[in-house]
Simulated scan of single mutants.
Amino acid sequence: MPVSDSADRAPGAATDAERGTDGSSDGLPINELFYSLQGEGTLAGVPSVFVRTSGCNLRCWFCDSYHTSWEPTHAWMSLEEILAEIESYDADHVVLTGGEPLLHDDSVALLEALDDRDYHTTVETNGTIYRDAPIDLASISPKLQSSTPTPERDPQGEGEWAERHEADRIDLDTLARLVADYDFQLKFVVTDADDMPEILELLADLRATAEVPIRDDDVLLMPEGATRERLADTRSRVADLAMEHGFRYTPRLHVDLWNDAPET
């Protein structure tokens, strides 16, 4: 797919090179569109079609979708093209992911079209953008301080994103709106016990702000790691933390099965 530097522009600002084959500017920058098993969260193991958009407003140093954030690549697809490919697979579940899919205006149009076709939709979001859309499960992954690409952790070695990422990674009001309006899961990427005080503080703040209860069962701890080797270092620690705090543990099933292969 062609490399583009346009994925972080204002949503909906398509260039001539980013239009669907029918000439319309409607559509989305698609990094991947594939059929697999949901690997994370409460629906882990469910056959699903994944629609991965390109572009993100954050830059986690450990991002497992590097080509949607640090070096965004995509093909521009119209909504009709996206829907046709989704319908070619035998699946009732669609996962809209990224990058940050809610950056894009036409993510709402896609979700509306999927709702009309009776698909169950999961939206994977970092929780910093709110959209009014038919979402069956908002899989919200607030980014912890440990995600910030400090100069020594910046995969591009430039350190330009650290301040912006740190300033934008948590939006409590947006998180509160998302959990109030949608069925949700709060999914935290965890490396070790050092992450827990921040998670507990954020949960306390969110529970005080949100208009709906947030149960411990709504909170998922997921081990950091996009390869089997890295998960071997983190999974048992994170499982122990989930048991200690009464939260849910979620695997990264796709990594266990296919390591870091694309389209999994």
Score class of each variant (00 low, 15 high):
L79H: 03
E158C: 01
A167F: 05
R252W: 04
A17L: 14
D181H: 09
T42I: 14
T53K: 09
T209C: 06
D106N: 11
D168P: 00
E71Q: 14
I199C: 03
E32G: 01
S107E: 04
D132F: 09
A138S: 13
L137R: 07
T97P: 11
E160Q: 08
L231S: 01
S4N: 11
W258M: 08
D256M: 05
G12D: 06
G157L: 05
T73Y: 10
P262F: 06
G41T: 05
V189R: 06
A113H: 07
I82W: 03
R207H: 10
T122V: 14
L144Y: 00
L96S: 11
L33T: 04
V49E: 05
T250N: 07
E201L: 12
A14Y: 01
P197R: 05
E158G: 01
S54T: 13
L175A: 04
A208N: 15
D64F: 00
D106K: 10
G225M: 05
A193Y: 06
V219M: 06
G23N: 09
Q156Y: 01
D217I: 12
P151R: 11
A7M: 15
G159D: 06
T121G: 06
F34M: 03
C60V: 10
T148Y: 02
M196E: 01
M243G: 11
E263Y: 13
E85C: 01
S88M: 05
V108R: 13
R9Q: 15
D240K: 05
S147L: 07
L178T: 09
H74E: 10
G23V: 05
S36F: 12
G41Y: 11
V190H: 00
G159Y: 02
A138Q: 05
V95P: 02
V179T: 09
L203Y: 11
D218H: 14
E166C: 00
I129V: 15
P11W: 12
V108I: 14
L33I: 15
S24F: 10
T264V: 09
A84W: 00
Y89G: 08
L102S: 09
P251I: 12
G39A: 10
A210T: 08
A109V: 03
L79Q: 06
E40C: 08
R228P: 01
P11A: 11
G12M: 08
Y119Q: 02
W76C: 00
N31G: 12
N259R: 01
K143S: 04
R235E: 13
L202T: 12
R177Q: 15
M222I: 12
T150H: 03
C60Q: 04
L178Y: 09
V238Q: 02
R235V: 08
N31Y: 13
D116V: 11
I140M: 04
P134T: 11
L43R: 14
A193E: 15
A180R: 13
A239P: 00
T209H: 13
Y89N: 10
V123E: 08
P213E: 14
S65P: 00
V95L: 07
